[in-house]
Simulated assay, not measured.
Amino acid sequence: MHQHKHERKTFWVVLLTAITMAVEIFYGLSTKSMALLADGIHMGSHVLAIGLSWMAYIFVRKASKSKKFTGNSDKILSLSGYSSGLILLLFAIVIMIEALERIYNPQEIVYKEAILVAIIGLVVNVASAFLLHHDHEHSDHNIRAAYLHVIADALTSLSAILGLTAAMLWDIPFIDTIAAIISSLVIIKWSVGLLKDSGASLLDMEKGEHHDHHHH
């Protein structure tokens, strides 16, 4: 069953992301680093979302064993994917707002430290992406949502690294802001795609599949 495999994978990613979050918040507070704190809090939104995906797999596993549950357990995965997509959308909008605020009141950025934080985030997320990578035919909305969260976070870390490096080298602070806005637009596009697909499956809107075999 690939669902059990997905469950294991999502568990490890939740653990990895949660540890990174805790470390970042701890050091963020102890070194008064805004960059670390902010990244730790962002990580938190992914811990929530991927944690949700992990719980969904546990729920499906329990539901498939239970005689009482007569519903379609794939729906659980779509529901979790949908909820996760909403969190991702919020995440992107928050980044967008933060970036726009920075245009109006530019903050002093401690570049070297911020770049280091972004690199840590990138490494963790790339590792998680490898863990969560799945065959297309075994894909479900749940693993896709977890994967998108990790990729989205990797994208924001990457854009931060590029933006901050450019800002530091050429002393153009707004490059970082533009990078953030671009990556949040990409993430909005992904999350909307995920919401459409998982929403369609929740409403049984699959193309030509409404006479599927789950009903009897």
Results as ranks from 00 to 15, higher is better:
Arg102Leu: 05
Arg102Phe: 02
Arg102Cys: 08
Arg102Lys: 15
Arg102Pro: 12
Ile103Thr: 10
Ile103Arg: 11
Ile103Pro: 06
Tyr104Asn: 14
Asn105Gly: 11
Asn105Phe: 14
Asn105Trp: 08
Asn105Thr: 15
Pro106Asn: 06
Pro106Tyr: 08
Pro106Glu: 05
Gln107Ile: 10
Gln107Gly: 04
Glu108Asn: 09
Glu108Lys: 14
Glu108Cys: 01
Glu108Trp: 02
Glu108Ile: 13
Ile109Ser: 02
Ile109Glu: 08
Ile109Gln: 10
Ile109Arg: 12
Tyr111Ala: 08
Tyr111Ile: 01
Tyr111Ser: 12
Tyr111Gly: 07
Tyr111Met: 02
Lys112Tyr: 14
Lys112Met: 12
Lys112Ala: 12
Lys112Trp: 13
Lys112Phe: 13
Lys112Gly: 15
Glu113Met: 12
Glu113Ser: 10
Ala114Thr: 07
Ala114Val: 02
Ala114Ile: 04
Ala114His: 04
Ile115Pro: 03
Ile115Asp: 02
Ile115Gln: 05
Ile115Ala: 07
Ile115Leu: 04
Leu116Glu: 09
Leu116Gln: 10
Leu116Pro: 01
Leu116Val: 07
Leu116Ala: 14
Leu116Thr: 12
Val117Arg: 01
Val117Trp: 01
Val117Lys: 07
Val117Asn: 08
Val117His: 03
Val117Glu: 04
Ala118Gly: 05
Ala118Thr: 00
Ala118Met: 11
Ile119Ser: 06
Ile119Glu: 09
Ile120Glu: 07
Ile120Ala: 12
Gly121Cys: 12
Gly121Met: 06
Gly121Ser: 11
Gly121Arg: 00
Leu122Ser: 03
Leu122Ile: 02
Val123Tyr: 05
Val123Gly: 05
Val123Ser: 04
Val123Lys: 07
Val123Thr: 08
Val124His: 03
Val124Asn: 00
Asn125Ile: 03
Asn125Thr: 01
Val126Gln: 03
Val126Glu: 01
Val126Pro: 00
Val126Gly: 06
Val126Met: 11
Val126Asp: 00
Ala127Trp: 03
Ala127Val: 14
Ser128Thr: 04
Ser128Tyr: 06
Ser128Leu: 02
Ser128Phe: 03
Ala129Thr: 09
Ala129Asn: 00
Phe130Ala: 10
Phe130Lys: 01
Phe130His: 04
Phe130Cys: 09
Leu131Tyr: 09
Leu131Val: 15
Leu131Gly: 11
Leu131Thr: 14
Leu131Asp: 11
Leu131Cys: 15
Leu131Met: 15
Leu132Thr: 01
Leu132Tyr: 05
Leu132Asn: 02
Leu132Ile: 00
His133Tyr: 12
His133Ala: 13
His133Gln: 11
His133Glu: 05
His134Thr: 13
Asp135Thr: 11
Asp135Trp: 07
His136Cys: 06
His136Met: 13
His136Glu: 14
His136Gln: 13
Glu137Tyr: 07
Glu137Phe: 06
Glu137Pro: 09
His138Met: 08
His138Asn: 14
Ser139Lys: 11
Ser139Leu: 15
Ser139Tyr: 08
Asp140Gln: 06
Asp140Thr: 10
Asp140Ile: 08
Asp140Ala: 08
Asp140Pro: 10
Asp140Leu: 09
Asp140Arg: 02
His141Met: 13
His141Asp: 10
His141Gly: 15
